[in-house]
Design a protein around this nucleic acid. Structure first.
Lengths: 227, 227, 227, 227
DNA sequence: CATGAATGAGCTTTCATTCAT
DNA sequence: CATGAATGAAAGCTCATTCAT
């Protein structure tokens, strides 16, 4: 980054000042680029997505990407974090009734399924990052650190509530369950292309799509239920 | 016919003939390229893996890739199919005792886990193909078509045997179970980089690695068990 | 918009503005490339003329050719159109006295001869385009459409004036005559290499070169003369 | 040429010998290549026509081209000479009645027109060679040397006969007339693509095609006629 | 007489990035 | 805050040609 990042992300809304108009315009340019980057990277991957494609889609210029983000890589990282953060916010916003643990679990399983279905860019972006062995995330990302617990902590609370009520086994780790829930939804959708080809079954048929979350929920409930 | 497919894969071992030497040399060149391609593509993806990197790793020339495979894309498809075929062969070779359904299931779950661990190229190559929405596989692949049933059929046999013995529920679909088993192993390993970053837990710790297949087996057995 | 047409030819001279320097530099780079392209293509043809040769001759970079012209083909088309346009302008600028039809015709025949001699790039570029069955011109060229009539119309006026004076036959079509005049000059020069080889006569000898336009003029005047 | 040209063109038909079959087969391979070369080079030019395209079209192998012709360039030269020779033979075979000079001239003009129309490969191949400033022909071609006179000599005879009968002017050079006749036919057809584009007239319309040789004949007769 | 394998230089084109206003 | 111009490396691919049977 040579051009000395002009306004390093600046979450703080610019107060009404003479320069507000300018900053607002800048913000939208930056946002347009970021949004375009998410689209392009999720469709083509980091290597396949060109800087030009992004600047074109955002109706801006290559140069602006460097002005705002410093490099293609940093733009990718921010796209990745943005997408993850959105997912996290959606998960946090889930309306969970802890007093009804079975129903709570069902809700969580369905949330994951639904979120992955509606946000393919989340799947693809994470896939690509894993393809690169997480090297972009490794370099930097203070923003994500504080974020983790929420999802798993919520699950932990549900599990504990269920155990107290005698409904659930007490020996299930929230982290394991979280990964299992994610795996069931993520893998089905993310790997649908190779699965469809190799298993010769169209996983995207309406019937198949309706069936899978039912199966996953059943699986999860059987896993955690006591007796 | 010059640039195009010089010897279409020719599975048949070249009999001892005057031309054996040439064919043998060609075969190894072709194989060296294919092996290098699997390595490079699984590390860098289709876009990130350059033709030059492959030809250099195989101690051959760019030109030879086009001579034997026609294009980077066709080479990728063949790498993908090869890797999938190997997996399929390993799965088929599994020594399963159908009269012992629980143990059989355990074996299958462990096989998937173990195979994914030992063959990261399988994970990465499939991931990359899914990133591209399966477009390479769509174009061609008659080889894979006949192959599907084996893995799922085996599982189906196990499930039926268990059900007959009164050990398993009769309403579990083999296809669902297969995907679930694959999901548990595949997702954990394939997505370990983003999971580790976002969940702040090192999934590759020996302890964690030892624990996961135990958890997965438990999950699968609880899912299918009657009572 | 990054790689694509940065300033679509912009005939308008950049007024004195702060950015004038930049535009001027760009304009000269673009012009240098175009000029180099005309040279290279006319010497080596479209296939034989390499992008590198052009960029080197223009003391620019390969990349700039794509920046300004989009592709090798589009550059070729522009070279072709430029060369044709120049010819057309020269022809239009001819000082013809319609009241002296015989002299006017002589002038026109000599103009063609002289122009082809002095602008071999015109011959070669058109030759190459015809070799490709006009495929480059077919794709695009609104610029040339309005242009046609001038040369033929001029000839038409001369023919009519001559006929009115009773000097010329009234049944000669201007288009035919135009093609004939062009043919005589163009073919002699353009095909001189094969003609020299096959006819075993050096068409480029001073004497031969001096003789031909005389012959051609005679031919044309005999053709159109009444009686 | 390293492979020491196996049978340098061998015009002589191989007498009935034990090896006749082999030679015959070779001859056809050689011929198939030559014919394919004429097609490919006339469509794509020397630079645009690849060795592979030729070997493919002739259902042979790249290697054979080098075996029989030594290099791409030598193959091109032979294609060129072949095509020229065929034209010359056809011209020589013309049934001309010298006692009827006007009709003889008409026949010659029509022959050129007809031949060019029916043999576009002749036009294109010669065009391409001229594009390269005759560099292929310059290198070699003893075969063509003896050939020249025939066509021009014939014309000379006709002109002389006409002059003797008082029909023709005595001051027309056969060489000039020959070039003019060739020019009229060749240029019209060879340059039809750029002419059509720039003159905005479809030169290949049936009517236009029927008209041109009439015009050309008229032109030639007027040129040579006395009084 | 024929052919599969190999070679290295070359091609057009695209890439991420920086300079100069 | 934005932009056109410039850069050089590298990409995938094709070329004419030769080697070794």
């Amino acid at each position: 980054m040579t051009t000395k990042s002009p306004k390093p992300k600046s979450e703080k809304k610019p107060a009404d000042s003479p320069t507000r108009g300018v900053q607002a315009r800048a913000q939208t340019t930056r946002d347009r680029i970021l949004r375009a980057a998410i689209k392009v990277f999720s469709k083509k991957g980091f290597d396949g997505g060109s800087v030009e494609a992004i600047s074109k889609l955002s109706r801006s210029h290559d140069r602006m990407i460097y002005y705002y983000f410093g490099s293609k890589e940093k733009l990718f990282v921010e796209a990745l974090e943005t997408v993850y953060q959105r997912m996290n916010e959606a998960e946090t916003a889930l309306d969970i009734d802890i007093d009804n643990p079975r129903e709570a679990l069902e809700k969580i399983v369905h949330f994951h399924w639904q979120y992955y279905r509606e946000h393919p860019e989340f799947l693809f972006l994470l896939n690509d990052e894993n393809l690169h062995e997480g090297k972009h995330l490794k370099k930097k990302s203070p923003r994500t650190e504080a974020v983790f617990p929420r999802a798993v902590n919520l699950l932990d609370a549900v599990l504990r509530a269920g155990a107290e009520k005698g409904l659930f086994r007490p020996d299930i780790r929230a982290l394991d369950l979280y990964i299992a829930i994610a795996a069931l939804g993520y893998f089905y959708l993310s790997n649908r292309y190779t699965l469809s080809a190799f298993l010769q079954a169209d996983l995207m048929e309406p019937e198949a799509l309706a069936h899978w979350p039912v199966f996953a929920t059943d699986l999860v409930l059987r896993l955690v239920s006591s007796n």
